[in-house]
Design a protein around this nucleic acid. Structure first.
Length: 559
RNA sequence: GCGGUCGUAGCUCAACGGAUAGAGCACCAGGCUUCGAACCUGUAGGUUGGGGGUUCGAGUCCCUCCGACCGCGCCA
């Protein structure tokens, strides 16, 4: 791939690194101080260049000079022939910042890199870090609803981004199939079953009244007839609880799959109890002296870790609590992974301190991150869609997908920072107009595909290895610069657990492409320019498709 | 009451402690005999809920008040 490079022009990363080194050396020499760390940021305003560094501000105290004087001094020394001229078109000291603008050749080289790496663009080398990512998890007592959709969209996107950045990601779903709610499920299902023979049969007060139990009851009746009507509760309860649990988990798994999310592990809570893992977790805390007995129950000293009260692990009757199970589960995950991330639902956010304290208590401080995927308010045409779990009046995730499709749902669900509550308007999400950001981005991809279809096949074939020097128009360079941000954006998504940045980035890429398309005729008469622009199109298509793939949204060639 | 999350343009939301707080939508004014107008350009829109503090610099960090949502069980 060295078909064009003049010796003085460097790839983007190397150019920036060369600048860092040179600036640090210049500062060190000028002010007789240790070489400082030089970090770049992307200025908010285009007039401040492609990259800027605030290194002069951080040196002000040590050098005892005003930032602007320091910045000027550094720039002056840099200009004294440090071999940067070929890669930078300008280096300026403005108000204490040092603003740099890269030469077109660097952006051209960035496009070339994208074309060369294709789907691997943005990949980071293996980090040798195993990360456990838990998200989506729900009780196996009903269909998945919108909040699990948000959690899954966020979690799956994070998992994709982490994998691209070289992490060994293991995704998990915890099935809350232990405890009293499973009995409630069993009783509810049994009541539905009995009502097939006797419509007057009473439905339990704390039951799950949703219609989704009806087909399950029907199947049991068709298979087993009425024989359970004569069974004792001790016989039918475990059977119906398990039947409901198995069926509902299977349906949840199918919904997840349909939503484009595959898990490495569906961890049963009941299994953690049965295999003694829960006992092990409790034992560990006991060894660490973090438990005490009171009133016949075993308590965890949660107050030592910022919780407002100590929490019960073993009830007076000896049965472990949910917390005890969670201790065990997190102990397992912490042992097996370098880092553990939980994405929990909004009803768990009083739980963060407790669970993080737990990680510290178990000897893994800082290894656990807990994030909350906030609530979603469902709207339809601006009116709130009423939902009440108690009355069984729910809108399932499947119904939402039926109505708006996977693409719109997944894009909307990651569009906002996850800690922000989200209003999701079903009507708006299907409207194929400019109120809908999904279509804007997908349209960009389809438009590129359309141009490539209309171009001469031999031009498209030549594009990936063509000279890119003709790309000098501001709109071309702006697009190239945007495309080159992709690895940095993905890295930021991982570092800050902020998948919403991908939605914004996809929008920005599409926007820069549309502007380029408007200002630059791609299929122009001039052959070299035409092919170079087709190359830029190919690179934009790659980056757009990769970005959407991370989010789990399709990149259509026509729409 | 205790704890957590949030409060930014009319609406929905961005902004590693950086420069004049930005996008989209809606409104208004423009742009297609030419590659997909599901697009582009421009105008307008703000005391970042109020008040203190930390520092070269705060929407961002700390304190406090106001407001919204949520959690606070030997439920899961």
């Amino acid at each position: 791939m060295n078909r064009r490079a003049a010796p003085e022009q460097l790839p983007l990363d190397d150019a920036l690194q060369a600048f860092r080194d040179a600036a640090a050396a210049a500062a060190s020499a000028a002010f007789d101080i240790p070489a400082p760390d030089v970090t770049f940021e992307a200025p908010r305003r285009a007039e401040f260049g492609d990259f800027a560094t605030n290194v002069a501000f951080s040196l002000a105290k040590a050098a005892r000079r005003p930032p602007q004087a320091i910045a000027s001094e550094i720039v002056e020394r840099l200009s004294d022939g440090l071999g940067l001229a070929g890669s930078f078109s300008s280096i300026e000291a403005v108000g204490g910042f040092i603003n740099v603008r890269l030469a077109p050749a660097v952006w051209q080289a960035a496009v070339e890199k994208i074309l060369h790496e294709g789907a691997r663009f943005g990949e980071a080398p293996p980090q040798n870090q195993r990360v456990s990512l838990e998200f989506g998890s729900a009780n196996p007592t009903g269909p998945l609803v919108v909040v699990q959709g948000r959690s899954m969209s966020i979690g799956d996107t994070l998992a994709n981004a982490m994998r691209l950045r070289g992490y060994d990601v293991f995704t998990e779903w915890i099935i809350n199939d232990a405890g009293g709610q499973l009995d409630a499920l069993g009783r509810s299902l049994y009541a539905r079953y009995r009502q097939r023979f006797d419509p007057e049969f009473p439905f339990p007060q704390d039951g799950y009244p949703g219609e989704y139990l009806l087909p399950i009851a029907r199947d049991i009746a068709e298979r087993d007839g009425d024989r359970w009507t004569r069974a004792s509760e001790a016989e039918w309860l475990p059977h119906f609880a398990k039947a409901g649990r198995d069926r509902l988990v299977a349906e949840q798994q199918q919904t997840a799959r349909r939503f484009g999310v595959e898990y490495d592990l569906w961890q049963s809570e009941a299994e953690l109890h049965e295999t003694g893992k829960v006992r092990e977790g409790i034992e560990r805390l006991r060894q660490l002296g973090l438990t005490y007995e009171q009133d016949g129950a075993l308590f965890f000293r949660a107050t030592q870790f910022g919780d407002d009260k100590d929490r019960v692990l073993l009830r007076r009757d000896g049965r472990p609590t949910y917390l005890a199970m969670d201790v065990a589960y997190h102990f397992l995950k912490l042992k097996q992974n370098d880092r553990v991330v939980d994405i929990l639902g909004p009803d768990h956010h009083g739980y963060i301190g407790r669970i993080k304290g737990l990680a510290a208590a178990l000897g893994y401080p800082g290894h656990l991150d807990v994030a909350i995927a906030q609530q979603i308010t469902l709207l339809r045409g601006g009116d709130q869609v009423s939902m009440s779990k108690r009355s069984g009046d729910i809108i399932t995730l499947d119904e939402i997908v039926d109505e708006v499709g996977v693409d719109a749902a997944r894009f909307f669900f990651i569009m906002l920072a996850m800690e922000s509550p989200l209003s999701f308007d079903l009507k708006l999400a299907v409207e194929k107009d400019n109120e809908n950001p999904v279509y804007y981005v997908q349209y960009g991809h389809a438009r590129i595909a359309s141009v490539l279809r209309r171009a001469l096949p031999e031009d498209v074939g030549a594009a990936p290895t063509a000279p890119l020097a003709p790309l000098v128009h501001p709109a071309e360079l702006a697009l190239a610069r945007r495309l080159s941000e992709f690895p940095t954006v993905v890295a930021g998504v991982v570092e800050y657990l902020a998948p919403h940045r991908l939605a914004r980035y996809a929008r920005d890429v599409a926007s820069d492409f549309h502007q380029f398309y408007t200002e630059c005729k791609i299929l122009t008469e001039e052959r070299d320019l035409r092919i170079a622009r087709l190359a830029l199109c190919l690179a934009a298509k790659t980056v757009l498709a990769r970005t959407l793939a991370l989010v789990g949204v399709s990149a259509p060639d026509s729409m």
